[in-house]
Amino acid sequence: MIEKLAEQLVNLTVKQVNELAIFLKKEYGIEPSNSNTRGLEPLVDSSKKESSSSKEEKNIFNLILKSSGNSKLSVVKLVKEITGKGLKESKELVDNLPNVLIKESVDKKEAENLKNKFEEIGAEVELK
């Protein structure tokens, strides 16, 4: 039985080895170490680095209004100020909630500032 298991492990593809490592970590809390996996850890770590670096690289966001909260008029005014649209157009945007794109391709700092402004008046905003 041990010989068959060893043969199966030796014949795993790189993808299967990564899946096994993830499964063992998730189900049993077992993480690969350099001493007993001979090359398994770099494969797992590279996938972690890719996902974390893709999160770090995101510097441009779209500002999406999810809810106007209790102060709809204040939200309409802020939408008007941010978008440069007229009062009627801004009101129509706020009336078409949820998931209304307020501003796209905004840098991280500006997106956070705008999100904070909306949240201060009770609106719910998402950055994507």
Rank of each mutant, 00 (worst) to 15 (best):
D107M: 10
V106A: 12
R38I: 05
V76N: 04
G86V: 08
E81V: 00
K115D: 03
G69C: 06
L65K: 02
L87D: 00
K117L: 11
K58M: 00
L93R: 08
L93W: 05
K55E: 11
S90P: 01
I60F: 01
D45Q: 14
S52A: 11
T13Q: 12
I82H: 04
L63S: 03
L127W: 04
G86T: 04
D45Y: 10
N59A: 08
V44S: 07
F118K: 12
L20T: 13
K108F: 04
V125N: 06
V75K: 01
M1C: 05
S74H: 01
V100G: 00
N18Q: 07
N59T: 12
I121D: 05
V14A: 13
N11D: 15
K15Y: 01
K115A: 11
K85T: 02
G84R: 03
S46G: 06
L65S: 00
I102V: 14
S74P: 00
N11I: 02
G69Y: 06
D107F: 12
E56G: 03
I60A: 00
V100K: 03
V10K: 14
L97W: 02
E124A: 05
K48T: 11
G69V: 10
K117A: 07
L20I: 05
E57Q: 11
S105H: 13
E81M: 01
K25A: 13
S105E: 14
E31V: 07
N11M: 09
E81I: 00
L5V: 13
N113M: 15
V79G: 03
K80S: 07
E56I: 09
L87M: 06
L73D: 05
S68I: 02
E126L: 12
E110P: 09
G122E: 08
K108D: 15
S74T: 00
I102R: 10
I2W: 03
S47I: 06
E7T: 10
S74L: 07
S105I: 02
T37E: 05
K58W: 00
K15T: 08
E120Q: 10
S90F: 03
K77W: 04
I121M: 01
S51H: 10
F118Y: 06
L63G: 00
A6L: 14
V106R: 10
F61A: 05
N70M: 10
L73P: 00
V17P: 03
K128C: 01
N99I: 01
K48P: 04
V75I: 07
D107V: 14
K109W: 03
S71C: 02
L63R: 04
E120K: 15
E31H: 10
K48C: 07
A123W: 09
S52P: 03
A21L: 14
N59L: 10
E110A: 13
K49S: 12
G39Y: 11
T37Q: 06
K49A: 09
S52Y: 08
V100N: 08
I82M: 09
E126Y: 11
N59W: 02
S90R: 08
N11K: 12
S68N: 03
N34M: 13
E124S: 07
V17L: 14
K103Y: 09
S74G: 12
V94Q: 12
Q8S: 07
